[in-house]
């Protein structure tokens, strides 16, 4: 080090060595520039599937298949809601937990954890304000109610999601917790039993075909 060439100038006593650039430093710098050119070319040459939105669309499609290939497209009918509100609903997955996740994402802020009610009504008792039949749950979720007190979710949730979250809400009835909000609205008759025909909707057959596909994506 003492033999290194020292540049003859001095600034307020500060001197500088005339050392060359460290080799690793120089080549990593060059490498980062070369890499950047290839990266830019690869992602911006216009090939399909490489842009941010293409990748998102693919991921979303895979996720949708993973979630719903088993059940196809559900209509918000009483049968469907009642079927999926049962923890033992068909398929290996607990569809109720999917409904619960959707509930936690979107509904918990007004209806409280486990549906005990907050600004929104208690969903665990037998009293309802805008629901008379079980399929009304899906209608209220889709269109909203009470002058905007209940927002409309039709543009925000997928049709399947509306059915599944309705099913979860239907399942909350009768699970009354302590500290729940006092009842609002009027008492309505209990939910009916799901009809037998619901058990073999075409969706179930699709599910057989769809599952291996979903497994691949997973």
């Amino acid at each position: 080090m003492e033999n290194e060439p020292l540049i003859q100038h001095s600034y307020d006593g500060i001197q500088e060595f005339d050392n060359p650039l460290p080799g690793w430093w120089k080549w990593m710098f060059v490498g980062s520039i070369v890499y950047s050119m290839f990266y830019a070319l690869f992602f911006h040459i216009g090939a399909p599937g490489r842009s941010m939105t293409d990748q998102y669309d693919a991921a979303l499609a895979a996720n949708t298949r993973l979630q719903f290939s088993e059940i196809g497209d559900l209509q918000p009918t009483a049968d469907n809601i009642l079927l999926y509100s049962s923890a033992l609903a068909k398929g290996r997955k607990s569809w109720l937990s999917v409904g619960q996740t959707l509930y936690k994402t979107n509904c918990v802020s007004c209806h409280g954890l486990d549906g005990i009610g907050k600004v929104g009504p208690n969903l665990t008792d037998d009293y309802f304000k805008n629901v008379h039949k079980v399929e009304d749950i899906a209608r209220v979720i889709t269109q909203g109610a009470g002058n905007g007190a209940m927002p409309a979710w039709g543009t925000r949730l997928l049709p399947n999601e509306i059915v599944l979250v309705s099913a979860y809400v239907a399942s909350l009835r009768g699970t009354e917790h302590e500290g729940g909000k006092p009842p609002e609205g009027s008492e309505i008759p209990p939910w009916p039993e799901p009809s037998a025909s619901a058990a073999d909707t075409p969706a179930e057959k699709e599910a057989e075909a769809g599952q291996p596909d979903a497994a691949k994506e997973g």
């Binding site: 020292l6 006593g13 500060i14 500088e16 005339d18 050392n19 650039l21």
Partner: peptide, 25 residues
């Protein structure tokens, strides 16, 4: 750093060339 560090250490700066290249880049 370029002023106070060599002042406090009383050592010459490692490389004049490196300062040129890394400054402009």
């Amino acid at each position: 750093m370029y002023y106070y560090l060599p002042k406090a250490a009383e050592r010459p700066v490692f490389s004049y060339k490196l300062s040129i290249i890394h400054f402009w880049s």
